[in-house]
């Protein structure tokens, strides 16, 4: 576990010391600040509008940061040859990959934490209540989603290259909701084979919308927090995809000549 932590710490240091995350947070802050400034016009329901925009921006910005950070981990190690001294130490390839994945998770958590501070500050400024329990569930599910995206980006970066992994990863994040609703919509009109194909697609691709609690958090006056069972089921659901993508990445990496 110590070796995994040491490798993860390196990824976290990279995320914290490079400028990308801060640029992303700053850009997002500008968008959120614009929404807060609308309060000058005393619009009705501004706090809900603020929460909706802020949470969506948080989620999108963290997802982009996660995909980029995860996708570049292995190609950069190969390109800069930093992998040689690292794997010359007594650390197995699976521990190396697990450390990288854990590091990306920590970086995503760092990014979310920055946004959370902004979100809470904005809510206090607008005198809007912060639904803490739903908020924590939101953050937890976001982290699960980031782990799915990170493991997918790892696999894609080994399968294709850095650019392709980033592009496909971000496209998948953006279109995930559309894919889910489109498959449900087309399913009714599809033939037998088409139905089987859509059903397979439904199981093969993770439905990222399941991890998006932003709408519930915005309307926290109407929606109670999720039950423990639902949270557990979502954890297992995410765990399956994380395991499958990580295993696929491991298969690509295991016998890869360096």
């Amino acid at each position: 576990m110590k070796k995994i932590w040491l490798i993860a710490r390196g990824v976290l240091l990279e995320a914290v010391r490079r400028k990308e995350i801060y640029a992303l947070v700053l850009t997002s802050l500008l968008i959120i600040a614009c929404v807060v400034l609308l309060d000058f016009f005393q619009l009705h329901g501004i706090s809900k509008f603020y929460r909706e925009i802020a949470l969506k921006v948080m989620s999108a910005a963290t997802a982009v940061a996660t995909v980029v950070l995860a996708a570049r981990q292995l190609p950069r190690e190969f390109e800069n040859r930093t992998i040689y001294p690292l794997l010359a130490k007594p650390v197995s390839r699976w521990r190396f990959l697990a450390g990288k994945l854990f590091g990306v998770l920590l970086a995503a958590a760092f990014c979310l934490a920055l946004f959370l501070v902004v979100f809470v500050a904005g809510s206090l400024y607008l005198h809007a209540p912060v639904p803490w329990k739903l908020m924590l569930q939101f953050v937890y599910l976001q982290l699960l989603m980031m782990l799915i995206l990170a493991s997918l980006a790892f696999w894609l970066s080994l399968l294709f290259n850095l650019d392709a992994a980033i592009t496909v990863g971000i496209i998948f994040y953006i279109t995930s909701a559309v894919i889910t609703s489109a498959t449900a919509f087309i399913y009714e009109w599809a033939s037998g084979f088409g139905k089987a194909l859509l059903l397979a697609l439904n199981y093969v691709l993770p439905q990222l919308t399941l991890f998006d609690l932003s709408a519930k958090t915005v309307h926290s006056d109407t929606w109670p927090p999720l039950s423990f069972q639902t949270m557990a089921e979502l954890t297992v659901y995410a765990g399956v995809f994380i395991t499958v993508y990580t295993a696929l990445a491991m298969l690509s990496f295991w016998r890869r000549p360096l």
Partner: peptide, 23 residues
């Protein structure tokens, strides 16, 4: 290794802590 760059965002001490820790 023949040619290796080391993580540019790390300090020399941190890099040695990483490699020493892994060992």
């Amino acid at each position: 290794p023949e040619v290796a760059l080391y993580y540019p965002f790390m300090k020399a001490r941190e890099l040695l802590e990483l490699y020493g820790g892994l060992q």
